[in-house]
């Protein structure tokens, strides 16, 4: 279970507070969605949960399965079972996708449970088939020259190989065509079980047609302002964020106002 209590976060570069007292709980086995207008701190939240060095927590706690994450390094969080599908996966030249994924799988496993090359290749084949990923993916360099859609598929491929306990998916649906969106959704649904939970960050409700969330949260100005089931997303789509803001009587400035 992920528990975030009264979280305040600043961006290191400009010392600006972006998350301003956020509370969020994601029980095991549930898929939660965070929606919200631009510039409201959604990506900052996801990066902060994963421990990006670009942000710092000034107040509050992030607790995952009884372990306080605040001061843990990113790799330590990954080894606790956290995963982030990034909005802009970085390109690393010279590192083969296949080697990286194998290393990543083994990095979170104790010495006596390392995955052999054969076992790994078999699993990789299965997952790649499942995600309609072409064979040339493996020998290409990590994300180098990948299209936006290929990068997102690659994030889902990594997630399915690594089998995290909690996957934060930051705008995993942006820039995807319908086919890719379906594939990505298929991957997320395949992961769903009692030991897996997910936090999906998105602007649009279209991914929610394929991945039915347990809870939808709306974030504005660094806080979760309302939560509900997936009907909330439909309501947002129809009325827009400004409408919801006024409905809730919140004094939050939207970037595009």
């Amino acid at each position: 279970m992920l528990k975030i209590k009264n979280l305040h976060v600043k961006i290191n570069e400009n010392d600006k507070e972006v998350i301003k007292g956020l509370n969020l709980t994601i029980p095991d086995g549930e898929v939660h969605v965070i929606m919200g207008p631009n510039g409201t701190g959604k990506s900052t939240l996801s990066q902060t949960i994963m421990g990006s060095p670009k942000y710092r927590i000034t107040n509050g706690d992030i607790i995952f399965n009884h372990t306080k994450l605040n001061d843990l390094a990113t790799d330590e969080r990954a080894r606790l079972g956290l995963f982030i599908g990034m909005q802009y996966p970085t390109e690393i030249s010279g590192v083969k996708n296949v080697d990286f994924i194998h290393a990543a799988m083994n990095a979170i496993k104790p010495d006596n449970q390392k995955v052999s090359v054969l076992e790994f290749m078999q699993r990789l084949d299965t997952v790649m088939d499942f995600l309609d990923i072409t064979e040339d993916y493996t020998n290409r360099y990590l994300n180098e020259g990948f299209s936006g859609g290929e990068k997102k598929r690659n994030e889902i491929l990594q997630m399915m190989m690594i089998q995290p306990k909690l996957a934060i998916l930051d705008e995993i649906d942006s820039g995807l065509d319908i086919d890719a969106l379906k594939v990505v959704s298929k991957g997320i649904n395949e992961m769903r079980d009692n030991n897996f939970s997910s936090l999906i960050i998105t602007h649009y409700d279209r991914i929610l047609k394929y991945v039915r969330p347990d809870v939808v949260h709306v974030m504005m100005d660094g806080r979760v302002v309302t939560s509900g089931d997936y009907h909330l997303a439909e309501q947002l789509e129809a009325g827009g964020y400004a409408n919801l803001r006024d409905l809730l009587g919140i004094d939050a400035k939207l970037v595009d106002d």
Binding site: M50, P53, A73, R77, I162
Partner: peptide
């Protein structure tokens, strides 16, 4: 950060980047 978010330690991630570089 990207490599570490997959569980590689800073030193493993650094080595991987260097190996890729050469």
């Amino acid at each position: 950060y990207y490599l570490m978010s997959r569980g590689l330690s800073e030193s493993e991630a650094t080595k991987m980047i260097i190996m890729g570089f050469i």
